[in-house]
Amino acid sequence: MTDARPEPADRTPTSNPVLRRALAWGAALAAVVLVVSAVLGLVFAGTEGLVSALIGTLMAVVFMGITAASILLANRYASSDVFVGVFFAIVLGGWLLKFIVFIVLVVVLRDAPWLNPVVLFLSLVAGVIASLVVDVLVVAKSRMPYASDVELPKAPTDD
């Protein structure tokens, strides 16, 4: 009897394609939201509105996308012995870092004279909601097998 254990194959979790698709579609919809909010900002608040809308949408999309990106980054260590620890360290550490940066940005940008806070807030909310819509659509349309990361033993060869 030969060694029946499977070879240490590629252990990358099957969530990677879904997350990649979500990032790609998120970027595509972000471009649309960016244009729409920029036009609305320009119409209602002039150049300040335009800049605010751009910054607000970019902030929303980038910060919402960091979660998927951090999971993708963490999945690179899938074959590591301490994968679970590394995974949650990267994902939750990224989350914490993201919020610290977000709060600092909000505090810094609030009193900037070249910004319109209301336009910035509204475009940020629009970006967040658009990103959520993309996430839900991508997950709803994703096809993932129930036993996604199982490794079947190879059939014995007749020698």
Binding site: S15, N16, I71, V139
Partner: peptide, 10 residues
Amino acid sequence: LAGRLQVLMW
């Protein structure tokens, strides 16, 4: 189920 659960977690 790690892959599926990761997507749900995300």
